[in-house]
Amino acid sequence: MNSTQRALAVGIGAALLQALMLIAFAWPAANIAPRDLPIAITGPQASQIAGKLAEHSPDAFEITSPADEAAARAAIADREVYGAILTGGGAPRVLVASGASPAVAQQLTAVAQQLSGAPAAAVEDVIAADADDPRGVAFGAMVLPLVMAGIAAGVLLSLVIPSVTARVVGLVTFGIAGGLVSMAIIQGWMSVVPGPFLTLAAVAGLVSFAVAGTVVGLATAIGRAGIGIAALTMLLVGNPFSAATSAPELLPQPWGVIGQYLPPGAAASLLRSVAFFDGAGAAKPLMVLLTWAVVAVALLGVGALRDRGAAAAPVPTQSPDPVPAA
């Protein structure tokens, strides 16, 4: 293949990658809609409201019926549902939690008010997003930099640091420093994420380690092709389906579910749980991130064992040329 043919191949490949990125990022955003979104409806008119929702938007909501208002509020605080519709005593009242998802809070408010007629339903934001970021724009925007920085750190460690042990040192250093610095900016300077600083910094550090570790681990285990596999997985699948700006139940399925098993989606869910819900619902995303981190370390171990075996293998000696007979 000459230079012209290689240039044509690179151009076509780049165009295909561009098309894939447009699909990955634009398609989820263009198809935002409730899909089995967990909500609670309680009170004497609960069954009628549930029936109207099912008739108006089939398969949009997964409805539970707690015993009373207190139980509905507890379900929201425990991240079991995104909101609740309370009936009885006049027009329905709506409980939302913009801390869980401003996009869902807006949709629930609109749906409930359409069903209630006049007067409009009273809406209470029981777990609000940060006052400096009421629409969750800054929160959603902070996940992508964490992922991109993790990829960049992983690439640098893979290409510049030859020793597996030194790569581990670099990953741990990046995780600790990255977590502290990122939260110092997001919480200390911008003040857009509430919650305990050190816990949030630990979450950001775990995300940084998991993303960078995946890149370094795959590169160590299978070579430079691992860098591309890890980067494309995190950017083309993990980031657009992370639901950082919406909710997993608003994305096309099964991609909304799959996104929660990748570091970007798990990072968004874990940060929300820590920042707004005192850790409620944190177990699953925490286990996802820890699993990615453990797998990354395991891949580094595989690469280290392979390199050690190659170094210990005896070098075949070349037998001397036979002396010709006189």
Results as ranks from 00 to 15, higher is better:
A201Q: 07
G188H: 06
F174S: 08
L236P: 00
I222H: 07
T173N: 04
A231K: 02
A221N: 05
G238D: 09
G226R: 12
A204N: 08
A177H: 06
V215Q: 12
L180D: 02
V237P: 01
V193A: 13
P240S: 13
G170N: 11
S163M: 00
A219S: 15
S182F: 06
G223D: 10
G226P: 09
L171E: 04
G205F: 02
L218R: 13
F174A: 14
S191R: 15
T173M: 11
V181C: 07
G195N: 11
G179D: 15
R167G: 07
T220L: 01
A177G: 09
M190L: 15
G238R: 03
V216H: 09
M183S: 06
L218I: 10
A166I: 01
F174C: 08
G179V: 00
L232H: 02
S208I: 02
A221Y: 06
G195I: 01
I186D: 08
V169W: 10
P194A: 10
V172H: 03
G188I: 03
L235F: 09
V216I: 10
A230G: 09
A204V: 06
T220E: 15
L218E: 12
G170Y: 06
G170C: 03
G238T: 07
V215E: 09
A221T: 05
T220H: 06
I229Y: 15
L180F: 12
A166Q: 13
V164D: 00
I227L: 08
A184M: 13
S208M: 12
V237M: 15
A219T: 05
G213E: 11
V193N: 09
G223T: 06
T233I: 10
S191W: 00
L180V: 14
G217L: 04
M183Y: 02
P196H: 07
G188Y: 10
W189F: 14
A210E: 12
V216P: 04
